[in-house]
Structures are given as structure tokens and as C-alpha cells.
Simulated scan of single mutants.
Amino acid sequence: MNNSIPSNLISLLCFFFLSIGLQGQEPFQVKGLCIAAPQPQSLDGFIDFAKNELAPNGINTLVLRIDYRYEYESRPELIGENPLRKEQVKKLVNACREVGIEIIPQVNLLGHQSWHSKASKLLEVYPEFDETPNIKLPEKYEWPNDDGLYCKSYCPLHPEVHEVVFDLVDEIVAVFEAKTFHAGMDEVFYLAHEDCPRCRGLDPARLFADEVRKIRDHLAETDTRLWIWGDRLIDGAETGIGMWEASMNNTARAIDMIPKDVVITDWHYERADPTPAYFATKGFDVIACPWRLPKVASDQVQMIADLKANSTKKMADRFLGVMHTYWSSAEQFMKAYKDPSHKLNERGHSPVLTFRAMTSAIKERENVNTQ
């Protein structure tokens, strides 16, 4: 009697169990968009956009850049121009929740406390927090410049800075009913600066790591998870990536000093650099982030899918997905998105077409996994 299983049945069983595995696996847990919070007068239009465009295209995560554009009750002196009100935020949160979109609010901490020639509200109101008080913002900004000025930082060792910024964090997390908070922390060029009487001569990696840990520990008190950008944790010289998408100011060693439950949003805009694998091997959950080149977005989607497919389960679970980043207003994004004549510019750039490329590539990968 032949007890062997027919080869065609083996093939069917293999296909069946493979299909179960693929269907049970969520290749892109995070399908995100990072964008500035809408202006109050555009809120209804943005809600319609989220319901009719973002959610149907698979977006389930919205990182909203808030900073000082909210009517803070805890720190009214830090309210910026044209802020959102509490009832408007609640309306947005509820509308996004209805269509399966989680909102993650962002307030830039540590770095990005100025923009070229204008200080942020924090340094405008509390100039004593400035890491580089002797470097003045120019009337006309140019890069490169003798001061190495791109944007200012607050001093992480100032004894009063966290009392102020954590008031903002707590209020924003509460009003957005958020379980995740994005602290920014990218492009921190001023740290351990010779101008600062507290930070001068200290280890930039340790300063950066201590600030990440301080923010993380504060958020943990309300069971809120921290996300940050990943550039300061990559060695710009060793990788050849350079000073923008990686660090050339000795912060990269901080990667071995920060808690592993911090999520890294790993932005690369010229290529799909394989740094998500680096972060995952270090124990971090990671999200790949494109901006303005459609091919980079498609390549990043493919890269995350390939990394998940060719990793142990422990590693694969750390590749959370992809998130498009947009650095102008929400209103500009919606206008370009709805413009049928919109196309790549002369340099081959279009954040909107990059977003479309990302969502299309995700759908293609997900369709493959369910066939």
C-alpha cells in the first residue's frame, strides 16, 4: 500500500498554508502621511479629504505637525498664528477615527526651534532656552553660512525648559486623545555648542540620548509611545549619507543609549537607503519615509516588503511600514492633489505624485499577498 501523499496535493497544501500566512501577515502596519495641521478655515475641507482620499487610499496614520498652532490653555503665551481650537481638534480626531485613521500629533522638541530668520514661539518667549544665544538670526538667510545656522535648538540642560515643553506635550496628547506622540528631533545641528554654558564640551551623543530618554520617560507616564526622526542616529561619514539625512556632529552613537521602544521614522529623499535594516538590527521599530521623488517612494515600499519577507519574525515585526512626508501646508497639498494637470517639476520632483506612487505601490504589494 502506497502511503505517500500525491505531489499535486502537496502543492495545493503548500499554496493553502502559504496563502494563510500571507493573508494573516500585515506587511504595512503603518501607511502614513506626515503633514502640517490644516488652517482652522480649511478644517472641513481637510476632513473631507481624509474621508474621501486618504482613507480610501489605505492611509491609516496621520502625523500632524502642530507645534505652536494650537490654543494652549496651559501655556497661552506660546500660542502661534492662526491656531486650532479644542473643539476643532476634537472634530478632526473623531472624523479620522470613523474612517480608521490614527492621528499622531507632532511638536518639534530639541531642534527646529527657529526657521532661517525667525525664531519659534518657544525661543521668542523664552530666549533663555536658546542653545546658541550668541548666534543671531539674519534678516536674509543664506546657506552655507559662517555660523553653521540652519535652525536653532533649545538647550536640553536648561533647568526650566522641560517644565514648559512638557506642558505643551501633555496638553496636545490629551486633546488629540493620542497614544503616540512625535517629537521631531531631526536636523539638530546645534548641540554641545561652545556658546552654551551648560552643554559646552559635553558628549553630543549622550546629550541627544538623554533628551530622547527624558521625553520617552515622560510620555510613558501616560502610556504614550514616542516617535522621532532617525537622522541623528545614523553616522553620516561612515554611510556616506552626509549631514542632512544623517549626523556629522557626533550624535550617531546615541542609537546605543536610547530605549528600544522608541519608533524611528527614517527619512531618505534621494534614494531608498537601507537604513531601516540598521535600526531593526538595533532593536527599533522603523518606518521608511519618502518625500518628493516617486521612484524613491516605490523603492522604499519594495524595500520594506523585502526586508519583512527575508527576516526572522522578530526582525520582520520591526518593519512597520512607510509614511509620506510633506513639508508645505495641508492646503497646498490638497490643491495639488486635486489638480488634474499637476505634474513633476523640471527636477523630477512632486510630493503629491510621490504620495500617489507610495499608496499605489502599497496596494500592489497587498494585492500580491492576498492572491
Rank of each mutant, 00 (worst) to 15 (best):
L9N: 12
S11R: 11
F16M: 07
F16L: 09
S19L: 12
Q29G: 02
Q29R: 04
L33T: 02
C34A: 12
A37F: 09
Q41F: 07
F46H: 12
I47S: 05
A50F: 09
N52S: 15
E53F: 15
T61A: 08
L62F: 03
L62C: 11
P76W: 00
E77L: 03
L78D: 00
L78F: 00
G80D: 00
E81W: 03
N94E: 08
I103H: 12
I103A: 08
I104V: 15
V107W: 08
S114A: 14
K118V: 13
K118F: 14
S120P: 15
L123I: 11
Y126T: 11
P127I: 09
I135N: 11
K136H: 13
P138G: 08
E142F: 15
D147G: 04
C151K: 03
C155M: 01
H162I: 08
V164F: 03
F166E: 04
D167E: 12
L168H: 13
A174Q: 13
V175T: 05
K179Y: 10
E187Y: 01
A192K: 03
E194G: 14
E194Y: 11
D195E: 05
R198H: 10
R200G: 09
A205F: 02
K214G: 05
R216V: 01
D217Q: 04
A220S: 14
A220N: 13
W229S: 00
W229N: 00
D231L: 00
D231G: 02
M243F: 15
N249D: 06
A254Q: 02
I258G: 09
V263C: 02
A272V: 02
T275Q: 01
K282E: 03
P290C: 03
W291C: 07
R292L: 06
V296Y: 04
D299V: 06
Q300N: 04
V301R: 07
I304D: 09
A305L: 11
D306Q: 09
L307W: 13
M315N: 12
A316M: 10
S328L: 11
S329R: 10
A330Y: 04
A330F: 03
Q332A: 12
L344E: 10
E346T: 13
H349K: 12
V352D: 07
T354I: 06
T354S: 14
A361T: 11
E364K: 14
N367M: 14
